[in-house]
Design a protein around this nucleic acid. Structure first.
Lengths: 150, 150
DNA sequence: TATTGTTATACTCTATAACTATA
DNA sequence: TATAGTTATAGAGTATAACAATA
Protein backbone atom coordinates (compact mmCIF):
# COMPACT_ATOMS: atom_id res chain seq x y z
CA UNK A 1 0.00 0.00 0.00
CA UNK A 2 2.60 2.53 1.06
CA UNK A 3 5.91 2.34 -0.75
CA UNK A 4 9.32 3.16 0.64
CA UNK A 5 9.47 6.07 -1.76
CA UNK A 6 6.26 7.47 -0.36
CA UNK A 7 7.51 7.15 3.17
CA UNK A 8 10.64 9.05 2.23
CA UNK A 9 8.99 11.81 0.29
CA UNK A 10 5.56 12.42 1.71
CA UNK A 11 4.85 10.66 4.97
CA UNK A 12 6.38 13.33 7.18
CA UNK A 13 4.00 15.96 5.88
CA UNK A 14 1.06 13.79 4.93
CA UNK A 15 -1.76 16.29 4.37
CA UNK A 16 -4.37 13.62 5.05
CA UNK A 17 -3.09 12.22 8.33
CA UNK A 18 -5.48 14.41 10.32
CA UNK A 19 -8.54 13.65 8.23
CA UNK A 20 -10.81 11.01 9.69
CA UNK A 21 -12.63 10.56 6.41
CA UNK A 22 -9.38 9.74 4.66
CA UNK A 23 -8.62 6.90 7.04
CA UNK A 24 -12.16 5.59 6.76
CA UNK A 25 -11.77 5.51 2.98
CA UNK A 26 -8.40 3.75 3.00
CA UNK A 27 -9.55 1.21 5.58
CA UNK A 28 -12.70 0.56 3.58
CA UNK A 29 -10.54 -0.24 0.57
CA UNK A 30 -8.44 -2.72 2.55
CA UNK A 31 -11.56 -4.31 4.03
CA UNK A 32 -13.29 -4.73 0.67
CA UNK A 33 -10.17 -6.05 -1.04
CA UNK A 34 -9.59 -8.65 1.65
CA UNK A 35 -13.24 -9.66 1.75
CA UNK A 36 -13.49 -9.95 -2.04
CA UNK A 37 -10.43 -12.16 -2.10
CA UNK A 38 -11.62 -14.25 0.83
CA UNK A 39 -15.03 -14.93 -0.68
CA UNK A 40 -13.74 -15.68 -4.18
CA UNK A 41 -13.32 -19.44 -3.54
CA UNK A 42 -17.09 -19.62 -2.99
CA UNK A 43 -17.74 -17.76 -6.22
CA UNK A 44 -19.33 -14.93 -4.25
CA UNK A 45 -18.76 -11.20 -4.22
CA UNK A 46 -19.33 -9.20 -1.04
CA UNK A 47 -22.75 -8.14 -2.34
CA UNK A 48 -23.75 -11.77 -2.93
CA UNK A 49 -22.63 -12.77 0.54
CA UNK A 50 -24.51 -9.88 2.14
CA UNK A 51 -27.65 -10.98 0.30
CA UNK A 52 -27.33 -14.58 1.46
CA UNK A 53 -26.64 -13.52 5.04
CA UNK A 54 -29.59 -11.15 5.09
CA UNK A 55 -32.03 -13.65 3.58
CA UNK A 56 -30.88 -16.20 6.10
CA UNK A 57 -31.70 -13.78 8.94
CA UNK A 58 -35.06 -12.71 7.50
CA UNK A 59 -36.45 -15.57 5.41
CA UNK A 60 -39.23 -14.41 3.13
CA UNK A 61 -37.85 -10.91 2.89
CA UNK A 62 -38.91 -9.10 -0.24
CA UNK A 63 -36.43 -8.31 -3.00
CA UNK A 64 -37.13 -4.58 -2.69
CA UNK A 65 -36.86 -4.51 1.08
CA UNK A 66 -33.62 -6.41 0.89
CA UNK A 67 -32.22 -3.96 -1.63
CA UNK A 68 -33.19 -1.04 0.56
CA UNK A 69 -31.61 -2.61 3.60
CA UNK A 70 -28.33 -3.20 1.78
CA UNK A 71 -28.29 0.02 -0.20
CA UNK A 72 -28.66 -1.80 -3.53
CA UNK A 73 -31.11 -0.37 -6.07
CA UNK A 74 -33.98 -2.36 -7.48
CA UNK A 75 -32.46 -2.28 -10.95
CA UNK A 76 -29.21 -3.71 -9.66
CA UNK A 77 -30.86 -6.33 -7.46
CA UNK A 78 -32.39 -8.08 -10.46
CA UNK A 79 -29.20 -9.56 -11.95
CA UNK A 80 -27.76 -10.31 -8.50
CA UNK A 81 -30.81 -12.35 -7.45
CA UNK A 82 -31.09 -13.92 -10.89
CA UNK A 83 -27.52 -15.21 -10.64
CA UNK A 84 -28.06 -16.62 -7.16
CA UNK A 85 -31.25 -18.34 -8.36
CA UNK A 86 -29.47 -19.71 -11.42
CA UNK A 87 -26.93 -21.27 -9.06
CA UNK A 88 -29.73 -22.79 -7.01
CA UNK A 89 -28.82 -20.87 -3.86
CA UNK A 90 -31.94 -18.70 -3.62
CA UNK A 91 -35.60 -19.53 -4.21
CA UNK A 92 -38.39 -17.11 -4.87
CA UNK A 93 -42.12 -17.27 -4.30
CA UNK A 94 -44.70 -14.56 -4.96
CA UNK A 95 -46.33 -13.06 -1.86
CA UNK A 96 -48.79 -11.15 -4.03
CA UNK A 97 -48.91 -10.36 -7.71
CA UNK A 98 -45.80 -8.26 -7.67
CA UNK A 99 -43.63 -8.92 -4.58
CA UNK A 100 -41.32 -11.90 -4.37
CA UNK A 101 -40.40 -13.58 -1.08
CA UNK A 102 -36.79 -14.77 -1.02
CA UNK A 103 -35.56 -17.87 0.77
CA UNK A 104 -32.38 -19.89 0.79
CA UNK A 105 -32.39 -23.37 -0.71
CA UNK A 106 -30.60 -26.17 1.10
CA UNK A 107 -27.51 -25.44 -1.00
CA UNK A 108 -27.99 -21.76 -0.27
CA UNK A 109 -27.96 -22.40 3.47
CA UNK A 110 -24.78 -24.42 3.12
CA UNK A 111 -23.08 -21.70 1.07
CA UNK A 112 -24.36 -19.09 3.49
CA UNK A 113 -22.79 -20.90 6.44
CA UNK A 114 -19.50 -21.11 4.57
CA UNK A 115 -19.69 -17.42 3.71
CA UNK A 116 -20.48 -16.56 7.30
CA UNK A 117 -17.40 -18.42 8.49
CA UNK A 118 -15.26 -16.67 5.91
CA UNK A 119 -16.59 -13.29 7.02
CA UNK A 120 -15.86 -14.09 10.65
CA UNK A 121 -12.32 -15.18 9.80
CA UNK A 122 -11.86 -12.06 7.72
CA UNK A 123 -13.00 -9.84 10.60
CA UNK A 124 -10.72 -11.65 13.01
CA UNK A 125 -7.77 -11.31 10.64
CA UNK A 126 -8.26 -7.60 10.10
CA UNK A 127 -9.51 -6.52 13.48
CA UNK A 128 -8.30 -9.24 15.83
CA UNK A 129 -5.62 -6.93 17.18
CA UNK A 130 -8.29 -4.77 18.80
CA UNK A 131 -9.41 -5.65 22.32
CA UNK A 132 -13.08 -6.57 22.36
CA UNK A 133 -14.09 -3.42 24.26
CA UNK A 134 -12.28 -1.19 21.78
CA UNK A 135 -13.86 -3.05 18.86
CA UNK A 136 -17.35 -2.55 20.26
CA UNK A 137 -16.76 1.10 20.97
CA UNK A 138 -15.45 1.52 17.45
CA UNK A 139 -18.55 -0.13 15.98
CA UNK A 140 -20.83 2.09 18.04
CA UNK A 141 -18.97 5.22 16.96
CA UNK A 142 -18.90 4.34 13.27
CA UNK A 143 -22.55 3.31 13.31
CA UNK A 144 -23.54 6.60 14.89
CA UNK A 145 -21.56 8.48 12.26
CA UNK A 146 -23.08 6.80 9.21
CA UNK A 147 -26.64 6.31 10.24
CA UNK A 148 -27.30 9.36 12.40
CA UNK A 149 -26.43 10.19 15.97
CA UNK A 150 -28.36 7.91 18.37
CA UNK B 1 -30.37 5.64 3.92
CA UNK B 2 -32.44 3.35 6.10
CA UNK B 3 -36.12 3.22 5.30
CA UNK B 4 -38.95 2.70 7.73
CA UNK B 5 -39.65 -0.60 6.07
CA UNK B 6 -36.11 -1.75 6.69
CA UNK B 7 -36.32 -0.73 10.32
CA UNK B 8 -39.51 -2.72 10.69
CA UNK B 9 -38.40 -5.84 8.91
CA UNK B 10 -34.69 -6.22 9.38
CA UNK B 11 -33.13 -3.92 11.90
CA UNK B 12 -33.90 -6.06 14.92
CA UNK B 13 -31.89 -8.95 13.52
CA UNK B 14 -29.41 -7.05 11.38
CA UNK B 15 -26.78 -9.67 10.52
CA UNK B 16 -24.19 -6.96 9.90
CA UNK B 17 -24.53 -4.92 13.08
CA UNK B 18 -21.63 -6.75 14.71
CA UNK B 19 -19.28 -6.48 11.75
CA UNK B 20 -16.78 -3.68 11.99
CA UNK B 21 -15.99 -3.91 8.28
CA UNK B 22 -19.63 -3.31 7.42
CA UNK B 23 -19.76 -0.06 9.36
CA UNK B 24 -16.47 1.07 7.84
CA UNK B 25 -17.93 0.45 4.39
CA UNK B 26 -21.20 2.29 5.04
CA UNK B 27 -19.43 5.23 6.65
CA UNK B 28 -17.00 5.40 3.74
CA UNK B 29 -19.96 5.69 1.39
CA UNK B 30 -21.45 8.56 3.39
CA UNK B 31 -18.08 10.30 3.59
CA UNK B 32 -17.40 10.02 -0.13
CA UNK B 33 -20.90 11.10 -1.10
CA UNK B 34 -20.74 14.19 1.09
CA UNK B 35 -17.23 15.07 -0.03
CA UNK B 36 -18.08 14.64 -3.72
CA UNK B 37 -21.08 16.90 -3.33
CA UNK B 38 -19.15 19.47 -1.31
CA UNK B 39 -16.32 19.72 -3.83
CA UNK B 40 -18.56 19.85 -6.89
CA UNK B 41 -18.86 23.68 -6.86
CA UNK B 42 -15.08 23.83 -7.45
CA UNK B 43 -15.36 21.37 -10.32
CA UNK B 44 -13.22 18.90 -8.39
CA UNK B 45 -13.67 15.26 -7.50
CA UNK B 46 -12.17 13.89 -4.28
CA UNK B 47 -9.24 12.47 -6.29
CA UNK B 48 -8.54 15.91 -7.81
CA UNK B 49 -8.64 17.57 -4.42
CA UNK B 50 -6.33 14.98 -2.89
CA UNK B 51 -3.86 15.60 -5.72
CA UNK B 52 -3.91 19.37 -5.21
CA UNK B 53 -3.53 19.03 -1.45
CA UNK B 54 -0.64 16.60 -1.80
CA UNK B 55 1.22 18.69 -4.38
CA UNK B 56 0.78 21.71 -2.15
CA UNK B 57 2.43 19.85 0.74
CA UNK B 58 5.24 18.40 -1.38
CA UNK B 59 5.93 20.77 -4.27
CA UNK B 60 7.94 19.11 -7.00
CA UNK B 61 6.64 15.67 -6.19
CA UNK B 62 6.80 13.28 -9.08
CA UNK B 63 3.68 12.06 -10.84
CA UNK B 64 4.51 8.44 -10.05
CA UNK B 65 5.34 9.09 -6.40
CA UNK B 66 2.13 11.03 -6.01
CA UNK B 67 0.12 8.21 -7.51
CA UNK B 68 1.73 5.70 -5.19
CA UNK B 69 1.04 7.88 -2.16
CA UNK B 70 -2.62 8.22 -3.07
CA UNK B 71 -3.17 4.69 -4.32
CA UNK B 72 -3.79 5.83 -7.90
CA UNK B 73 -2.10 3.89 -10.70
CA UNK B 74 0.21 5.50 -13.22
CA UNK B 75 -2.21 4.81 -16.04
CA UNK B 76 -5.02 6.56 -14.19
CA UNK B 77 -2.89 9.50 -13.08
CA UNK B 78 -2.30 10.59 -16.66
CA UNK B 79 -5.82 11.88 -17.43
CA UNK B 80 -6.23 13.30 -13.91
CA UNK B 81 -3.07 15.40 -14.18
CA UNK B 82 -3.82 16.29 -17.79
CA UNK B 83 -7.19 17.72 -16.78
CA UNK B 84 -5.70 19.75 -13.92
CA UNK B 85 -3.03 21.10 -16.26
CA UNK B 86 -5.63 21.93 -18.91
CA UNK B 87 -7.43 23.98 -16.26
CA UNK B 88 -4.20 25.77 -15.41
CA UNK B 89 -4.12 24.51 -11.83
CA UNK B 90 -1.03 22.31 -12.07
CA UNK B 91 2.28 22.88 -13.83
CA UNK B 92 4.82 20.32 -14.79
CA UNK B 93 8.55 20.43 -15.34
CA UNK B 94 10.90 17.57 -16.17
CA UNK B 95 13.37 16.61 -13.43
CA UNK B 96 15.15 14.26 -15.80
CA UNK B 97 14.28 12.78 -19.14
CA UNK B 98 11.30 10.84 -17.82
CA UNK B 99 10.08 12.13 -14.44
CA UNK B 100 7.86 15.17 -14.16
CA UNK B 101 7.89 17.46 -11.14
CA UNK B 102 4.44 18.78 -10.26
CA UNK B 103 3.70 22.20 -8.81
CA UNK B 104 0.62 24.29 -8.27
CA UNK B 105 0.12 27.41 -10.33
CA UNK B 106 -1.15 30.57 -8.67
CA UNK B 107 -4.69 29.56 -9.61
CA UNK B 108 -3.93 26.08 -8.37
CA UNK B 109 -2.91 27.39 -4.96
CA UNK B 110 -6.10 29.43 -4.79
CA UNK B 111 -8.26 26.43 -5.71
CA UNK B 112 -6.29 24.27 -3.30
CA UNK B 113 -6.99 26.65 -0.43
CA UNK B 114 -10.68 26.63 -1.29
CA UNK B 115 -10.67 22.83 -1.46
CA UNK B 116 -8.87 22.63 1.85
CA UNK B 117 -11.52 24.78 3.50
CA UNK B 118 -14.27 22.66 1.99
CA UNK B 119 -12.62 19.52 3.29
CA UNK B 120 -12.30 21.01 6.76
CA UNK B 121 -15.96 22.03 6.77
CA UNK B 122 -16.92 18.60 5.52
CA UNK B 123 -14.96 16.91 8.31
CA UNK B 124 -16.52 19.22 10.89
CA UNK B 125 -20.00 18.54 9.55
CA UNK B 126 -19.62 14.77 9.61
CA UNK B 127 -17.43 14.31 12.64
CA UNK B 128 -18.01 17.44 14.67
CA UNK B 129 -20.13 15.52 17.12
CA UNK B 130 -17.07 13.64 18.31
CA UNK B 131 -15.03 15.12 21.13
CA UNK B 132 -11.52 15.91 19.96
CA UNK B 133 -9.93 13.15 22.04
CA UNK B 134 -12.30 10.55 20.64
CA UNK B 135 -11.64 11.78 17.11
CA UNK B 136 -7.91 11.47 17.54
CA UNK B 137 -8.18 8.01 19.06
CA UNK B 138 -10.41 6.99 16.19
CA UNK B 139 -7.91 8.24 13.62
CA UNK B 140 -5.08 6.38 15.33
CA UNK B 141 -7.09 3.17 15.43
CA UNK B 142 -8.21 3.34 11.80
CA UNK B 143 -4.74 4.26 10.62
CA UNK B 144 -3.25 1.31 12.44
CA UNK B 145 -5.84 -0.99 10.87
CA UNK B 146 -5.29 0.04 7.26
CA UNK B 147 -1.57 0.60 7.13
CA UNK B 148 -0.25 -1.96 9.55
CA UNK B 149 -0.12 -2.01 13.32
CA UNK B 150 2.37 0.57 14.66
C1' DT C 1 16.86 -4.13 -16.87
C1' DA C 2 13.92 -1.19 -14.44
C1' DT C 3 11.20 3.04 -14.40
C1' DT C 4 8.31 7.10 -16.25
C1' DG C 5 4.59 8.47 -18.58
C1' DT C 6 1.24 7.34 -22.14
C1' DT C 7 -2.41 4.91 -24.81
C1' DA C 8 -5.97 1.80 -25.35
C1' DT C 9 -9.07 -1.02 -23.34
C1' DA C 10 -11.94 -3.86 -20.24
C1' DC C 11 -14.35 -4.81 -16.16
C1' DT C 12 -17.06 -3.76 -12.13
C1' DC C 13 -20.15 -0.91 -9.65
C1' DT C 14 -23.48 2.19 -9.61
C1' DA C 15 -27.05 5.32 -11.62
C1' DT C 16 -31.17 6.68 -14.44
C1' DA C 17 -35.16 6.17 -17.27
C1' DA C 18 -38.77 3.69 -19.21
C1' DC C 19 -41.67 -0.19 -19.23
C1' DT C 20 -45.26 -3.96 -17.23
C1' DA C 21 -48.11 -5.58 -13.98
C1' DT C 22 -50.09 -5.32 -9.89
C1' DA C 23 -51.92 -2.88 -5.39
C1' DT D 1 -51.43 6.91 -7.87
C1' DA D 2 -47.73 4.28 -5.88
C1' DT D 3 -45.01 0.04 -5.77
C1' DA D 4 -42.40 -4.42 -7.50
C1' DG D 5 -39.64 -6.17 -10.69
C1' DT D 6 -37.47 -5.87 -15.20
C1' DT D 7 -34.73 -4.10 -19.13
C1' DA D 8 -31.48 -1.30 -21.30
C1' DT D 9 -28.01 1.80 -20.89
C1' DA D 10 -24.68 5.24 -19.28
C1' DG D 11 -21.19 6.86 -16.27
C1' DA D 12 -17.67 6.50 -12.77
C1' DG D 13 -13.66 4.22 -10.94
C1' DT D 14 -10.31 1.05 -11.37
C1' DA D 15 -7.63 -2.73 -13.70
C1' DT D 16 -4.19 -4.68 -17.19
C1' DA D 17 -1.10 -4.85 -21.10
C1' DA D 18 1.83 -2.90 -24.30
C1' DC D 19 4.62 0.86 -25.93
C1' DA D 20 8.41 4.62 -26.31
C1' DA D 21 11.77 7.15 -24.03
C1' DT D 22 15.04 7.30 -20.47
C1' DA D 23 17.87 5.79 -16.30
Amino acid sequence: MLTKRYKRSMAATDPFAGLLGYHVRRLSFVVMSDLTESLAPLGLKPADASILLAISEVPGVTQSDLGRALGIRRANMTPLIAALMARGLVEREPVDGRSQALRLSRAGRRTCRAAHQIVKDHEARLFGSLPEAARERLIAQLRALWCGAP
